[in-house]
């Protein structure tokens, strides 16, 4: 799992993930995710190149959403594949993480 981080205009932090959010991938991104969640209120995650989302990855997303939300911020993911989108829906993660079609929509919803 590769994680890139970019600061966009308006205090938005864009995270780009590349790989699988399985136990290994989730373990690799957990610490940097915690850091971003504690220091940013507007976070968007590009999921274009995330091919797999297991419950361990859900844990990372929910924890981040709670941390960001407790500080009045918002977390959005975008361009999520069908399988991962269905996992987000069946667990209800989409009630606390905004699931958007593209980067522009994600930026809009956290701004």
């Amino acid at each position: 799992m590769q994680m890139d981080r970019q600061e966009l205009e308006g205090g938005i932090c864009k995270i780009t993930l590349n790989g699988s959010l399985d136990i290994e991938g989730a373990g690799a991104v957990e610490a940097p995710f915690n850091e971003v969640s504690q220091t940013h209120k507007k976070v968007i995650i590009d999921m274009t190149n995330v091919d797999f989302l297991a419950s361990i990855g859900i844990r990372v997303l929910v924890k981040s959403a709670k941390t960001i939300g407790s500080r009045g911020g918002r977390l959005a993911v975008y361009n999520v594949n069908d399988a991962a989108r269905s996992v987000l829906a069946s667990t209800g993660v989409d009630a606390i993480v905004f699931v958007e079609d593209d980067e522009a929509a994600a930026i809009n919803v956290v701004s």
């Binding site: 297991a54 419950s55 844990r59 959403a65 709670k66 407790s70 996992v87 009630a95 606390i96």
Partner: peptide, 23 residues
Amino acid sequence: EAAKITDLETAQIGGFGVKLMRE
């Protein structure tokens, strides 16, 4: 089975594995 998430305050962080296996 873990309860489906409805809001930030009550959301459980984990426990979704068995729910996904069943579904």
